[in-house]
Computed example of a mutant assay.
Amino acid sequence: MVGALARALRLDQAERDQLYRAAGLLPPQDATVGTDLPPGIRRVTARLTDVPMGVFSASWTLLHWNAMWAALHGDPAGERNLARVLFESGVVGAFRLPTWSAAGRAAFEADIVADLKEASARYPADAGLTALVAGLRRTSAVFAGLWERAGASTMTSDVKTIRHPAVGELTLDCDVLTVPGADLRIVSYTAEPGSPDAAKLQRLAEL
């Protein structure tokens, strides 16, 4: 409740911490991955009804999505952490439909690992993130190798092709937007207006 009030009042970090102390609570520890969604992000994903949008934490765990995201990827169930879906064999999650990147699977995997490595440096006290990385380094030789070689990385736009059982293959622009002050990633899919892929997205909305 205190966190929601701080967001509603749009307090900066110092003001937020003072509010927590006034309520007799410890301020949130910024050394852990945040999972709270600002109300504005929820409203944006709800109102953009024709754009598939998913919101991920810094550990690449899917936190929130709109109806078009579920229509494109399937209703998220089971594992929602993208790194586990990519690197653990047999794991089925929110990305279970066949999906591939114009940059290639290897380039996409390297970007995710580099981003996780940077997140680990920012949130050294986050037990969940530490366990995620340790588990993947132990069970996935690919992840472990990429982790050792990972340098600084910035998630960029890409083109993804998704094989959907209802409308066939869609080739869409995939953009990753960061939320200032919240360290969240908004992933969106769009198509060129008037293109066959845009028509397929519209068909998914109708379905």
Rank of each mutant, 00 (worst) to 15 (best):
residue 151 G to M: 09
residue 184 L to R: 05
residue 147 W to Y: 12
residue 70 A to C: 10
residue 142 V to F: 00
residue 92 V to Y: 01
residue 116 L to A: 02
residue 11 L to A: 14
residue 63 L to I: 14
residue 150 A to I: 09
residue 20 Y to S: 08
residue 61 T to H: 08
residue 189 Y to S: 04
residue 30 D to A: 11
residue 4 A to S: 15
residue 43 R to L: 13
residue 32 T to V: 14
residue 127 A to K: 05
residue 7 R to T: 07
residue 17 D to T: 14
residue 156 T to R: 12
residue 183 D to V: 02
residue 171 T to W: 03
residue 83 A to R: 09
residue 99 T to V: 08
residue 97 L to A: 12
residue 183 D to H: 06
residue 50 D to V: 05
residue 93 G to D: 13
residue 30 D to R: 12
residue 154 T to R: 13
residue 184 L to P: 06
residue 26 L to S: 15
residue 81 N to M: 11
residue 168 G to A: 05
residue 69 W to L: 06
residue 6 A to W: 01
residue 111 D to H: 11
residue 61 T to V: 10
residue 4 A to D: 15
residue 5 L to D: 10
residue 122 R to F: 00
residue 74 G to I: 12
residue 26 L to I: 02
residue 197 D to V: 03
residue 87 F to W: 08
residue 23 A to L: 05
residue 82 L to G: 11
residue 17 D to L: 12
residue 118 E to W: 00
residue 143 F to L: 05
residue 148 E to F: 02
residue 80 R to C: 13
residue 75 D to G: 12
residue 107 A to D: 11
residue 121 A to K: 04
residue 203 R to I: 00
residue 140 S to W: 01
residue 142 V to A: 14
residue 165 P to H: 05
residue 138 R to Y: 01
residue 199 A to W: 00
residue 145 G to R: 09
residue 34 G to K: 05
residue 135 G to M: 05
residue 63 L to Y: 09
residue 80 R to A: 13
residue 124 P to L: 01
residue 180 P to L: 00
residue 66 N to W: 02
residue 92 V to E: 14
residue 170 L to N: 07
residue 3 G to T: 08
residue 36 D to A: 12
residue 57 S to G: 15
residue 203 R to V: 02
residue 29 Q to S: 14
residue 95 F to Q: 11
residue 173 D to S: 08
residue 52 P to G: 10
residue 9 L to S: 08
residue 152 A to N: 12
residue 33 V to T: 08
residue 14 A to Q: 13
residue 97 L to K: 11
residue 146 L to P: 07
residue 11 L to R: 12
residue 182 A to E: 09
residue 157 S to G: 15
residue 96 R to P: 08
residue 109 E to F: 00
residue 106 A to C: 01
residue 92 V to S: 14
residue 56 F to W: 09
residue 15 E to V: 02
residue 190 T to A: 07
residue 12 D to T: 10
residue 2 V to Q: 01
residue 144 A to K: 06
residue 87 F to L: 10
residue 83 A to D: 12
residue 59 S to K: 10
residue 169 E to D: 15
residue 108 F to K: 04
residue 184 L to I: 04
residue 123 Y to M: 01
residue 201 L to Q: 07
residue 74 G to T: 13
